[in-house]
């Protein structure tokens, strides 16, 4: 697990993101079902269940690079610190930032966990404390059945064809992954001022 700390957000909002890459993942459909059920549960039990899976589950094959993910997380954290979230939580805001359209359902369907997800990026955003690191790690372990991989292996998993389709990048040369990466990072960063 890695953490990104955005020093300039300290004192304004949640400044830290814990990120783990799991590949392969065995229980993707169970995770999806759990998220759906947790949102409907009431009372204390519901609170506990929602806390147990208080993560962004991102389809890792749609992330092109560490900077791509970092940019989406940063824009979500920024929106939260300004009380300008467009979705219900800072975690769903990451998925929203990743998708090039303004359709939230579509963003979650495309970039979130689906029954067929093989690799997942699990992200938790919160205030940065040493104690929350191990706690978060434990919660992730309980929620995800999969093999933990270093973030550096992200690029090997990328599904470039699908990314190009979502961003409507038809003209780009098939092997030119670097410029696709550049484009999607910029697209994520400017999401809030997209037309």
């Amino acid at each position: 697990m890695e953490s990104f700390v955005f020093d300039h957000v300290r004192g304004v909002g949640s400044d830290s993101a814990y990120v783990a890459l799991y590949s392969p993942v065995a229980n993707a459909s169970a995770i999806r079902k759990r998220i759906m059920d947790a949102s409907k549960m009431e009372g204390e039990e519901g609170e506990r269940e929602r806390d147990a899976i208080n993560f962004a589950f991102i389809d890792a094959t749609l992330i092109t690079s560490r900077l791509h993910l970092q940019t989406a997380i940063h824009q979500a954290i920024l929106a939260e610190s300004q009380n300008s979230l467009r979705t219900k939580t800072v975690h769903s805001e990451i998925l929203f930032a990743l998708n090039p359209t303004n359709n939230i359902t579509e963003a979650i369907r495309r970039y979130g966990v689906s029954d067929s997800s093989r690799a997942l990026l699990v992200v938790h955003i919160g205030p940065g404390h040493r104690s929350s690191l191990s706690e978060t790690e434990n919660k992730m372990k309980k929620a995800v059945e999969g093999v933990l991989k270093p973030l550096g292996e992200l690029e090997e998993l990328t599904d470039w064809q699908r990314i190009k389709k979502y961003h409507r990048l038809n003209t780009a040369d098939d092997e030119d992954h670097a410029s696709v990466n550049d484009f999607v990072i910029s697209a994520v960063a400017m999401k809030t001022v997209m037309q």
Binding site: T71, S84, S179, S186, A189, M190, T192, V193
Partner: peptide, 28 residues
């Protein structure tokens, strides 16, 4: 103006023009 500049940059990137990539936008 921030939106305009960001959109123009993205349009250039889409067309393969060498311009700096966008890293963050806080229009507020």
């Amino acid at each position: 103006r921030i939106a305009g500049e960001a959109r123009t940059l993205l349009r250039c990137l889409r067309a393969g023009v060498n311009v700096p990539g966008i890293r963050m936008v806080d229009a507020t």
